[in-house]
């Protein structure tokens, strides 16, 4: 009888788990350099309409700015893990929306574009969240331009289990002249990110599709 009770208790304890592994963590990397700097209001709009409503209690959202040197804590524009109570989570979402609104109106423009630095910072946040589904959404033209002396070597498992969505990739002037270069750039990113453990690299053209992709996990 005692043994049966012990087994039942062990099974019950085994079946209990933290809710973190069922939650979702999203890191949004927003480019503020060069030609992409004027896209911020649109990016914030996409996050407000496409990402925030899809978050459920327990989910995490981190917004990181991509500038000349992105691997700095100061680049984190907003970070929030939603409370498990729906009412409080709603209040947090409203607060984050106002923070993003303020970010969209900031006067920011960097000379260089450190995408991998932001990715590495975002990957750290994702690992820390311990979420079951980890997604990195990049709002950039995907043209990296590191300042002199800055080195960005990602670890082999830097993006392990992370799904990378390149959202709203802006075509550069020379991309129009030679679309193959644009495609080659994206293919290069795909190769690089998957070699560092990324689960998937996907380019999303329509903002409306982002919500569905986030739901798919």
């Amino acid at each position: 009888m005692n043994r049966a009770c012990f087994v039942a208790a062990a099974l019950l304890a085994g079946s209990c788990s933290s809710g973190a592994q069922y939650s979702q963590a999203i890191v949004a990397l927003v480019d503020v350099s060069g030609t992409y700097a004027d896209q911020r209001p649109e990016v914030v709009n996409v996050i407000r309409k496409g990402v925030l409503p899809r978050l459920t209690p327990g989910d995490t959202l981190v917004v990181i700015r991509i500038d000349s040197e992105s691997y700095k804590k100061a680049n984190v524009e907003a970070s929030m893990t939603l409370d498990v109570r729906p009412s409080k989570a709603n209040a947090q979402k409203l607060q984050l929306a106002s923070t993003l609104e303020a970010f969209s109106h900031k006067q920011l423009r960097s000379a260089h574009t450190d995408i991998r630095g932001a990715m590495m910072l975002g990957a750290e946040y994702l690992r820390e969240s311990n979420a079951g589904r980890r997604t990195m959404v990049i709002f950039s033209d995907m043209e990296e331009d590191l300042p002199r002396g800055v080195k960005r070597d990602m670890a082999a498992d830097e993006l392990k289990g992370v799904r990378v969505l390149a959202m709203n990739v802006k075509r550069l002037g020379h991309d129009n002249a030679n679309p193959t270069a644009y495609r080659a750039r994206l293919a290069g990113w795909e190769k690089q990110l998957t070699s560092h453990g990324a689960r998937e690299f996907k380019v999303v053209l329509e903002p409306e599709k982002l919500s569905d992709l986030l739901d798919e996990g």
């Binding site: 809710g19 209690p57 498990v84 109570r85």
Partner: peptide, 18 residues
């Protein structure tokens, strides 16, 4: 089920269920 998440604010799960 929905309002219960306000009363039982726990992130833990039992057999995959909140």
């Amino acid at each position: 089920a929905l309002p219960m998440s306000e009363l039982v604010p726990s992130g833990s799960r039992i057999a995959g269920m909140p």
